[in-house]
């Protein structure tokens, strides 16, 4: 039965075989169509997420002493604990829900696309070709989650690449897998610290920086960056009004004194 704790997902990259079942399941559940792609020398298809594709698998071939080694990286919204996209949205169209998913409400959206600038992972995509466009991104299957079901991509995964549990549970599981399997994983949990922590986290057998993960993302929650400015506004209001009133009074008195002379 559905419990009420916020949900999280651990993606264990050592388990993924690159079957792309998750991509198909995601399209079916979210009723997404397809965008035409062309051969470009890499199996990752589509090469980037887009408004019709909320998740894809990155195919990465690496050379390990003359032996080719493949890695498959599932890519989707990480559903940050303190999401930049939701904090910058002027109308709360994007929102971090109690259950974990960062959801989008089209009824509120104005289409300013600040979320796209703000997201450090380049996740929100836009329906540029439409006259009535939506922002599109992975929903963490919020309706399924709310009804006690697992997200569509996790449901179909044949190798249990994704471990779905509550937020704290997946973190504990990540730590456990790394400590119980010495040498199998690199000692980094991607998403544990990045951008202040994410609901989807990753463990991997090869260094994350070689798999296209952005390692430069600070551990600071992104909303702090803009809040540093906004929290000063009341002080600015006080200073400007006081300074303005005082200078008006002083210059006015000078003017009156000029007149008297």
């Amino acid at each position: 039965m559905a419990d009420t704790k916020p949900k999280g997902v651990l993606v264990d990259l050592t388990r993924c075989i690159g079957c792309r079942g998750c991509q198909i399941a995601c399209k079916e559940w979210n009723e997404r169509s397809v965008k035409k792609t062309v051969m470009y020398g890499n199996f990752t298809n589509p090469p980037e997420l887009n408004s019709e594709c909320y998740t894809n698998i990155r195919y990465i071939e690496q050379d390990n002493g003359g032996v080719p080694v493949w890695s498959f990286v599932k890519n989707q919204c990480l559903h940050c604990k303190n999401p930049a996209c939701a904090s910058v949205c002027p109308v709360e169209a994007l929102k971090k829900t109690e259950a974990g998913p960062v959801t989008y409400n089209f009824e509120r959206c104005i289409g300013c696309r600040y979320c796209m600038l703000a997201c450090p992972f380049y996740i929100p995509k836009y329906e540029w070709e439409k006259a009535v466009p939506w922002v599109r991104k992975c929903t963490f299957c919020s309706e399924r989650v709310a009804n006690g079901l697992v997200p569509a991509c996790i449901k179909v995964c044949p190798t249990q690449t994704m471990y779905y549990s509550d937020f704290d549970g997946v973190r504990a599981e990540a730590e456990r897998r790394i400590s119980e399997n010495p040498g199998k994983y690199v000692s980094h949990i991607y998403g544990k610290e990045e951008a202040g922590g994410t609901s989807w986290i990753y463990i991997s057998g090869v260094p994350f920086e070689t798999l296209g993960f952005n390692m430069a993302i600070p551990a600071q929650p992104y909303p702090d960056l803009t809040w540093a400015y906004i929290k000063k506004i009341p002080a600015v209001i006080g200073v400007v009004i006081a300074a303005g009133a005082v200078s008006w009074a002083i210059t006015r008195r000078n003017k009156n004194m000029d007149k008297e002379e």
Binding site: P90, V91, E92, C109, I110, G111, Y229, I230, I233
Partner: peptide, 22 residues
């Protein structure tokens, strides 16, 4: 903006954490 007819939304849908709202 993508949805010009919603331009008035920030006036009634306050989100004080957003610089865009400010």
């Amino acid at each position: 903006i993508g949805l010009p007819w919603n331009i008035w939304h920030p006036i009634v849908m306050w989100q004080i954490h957003s610089v865009m709202w400010v």
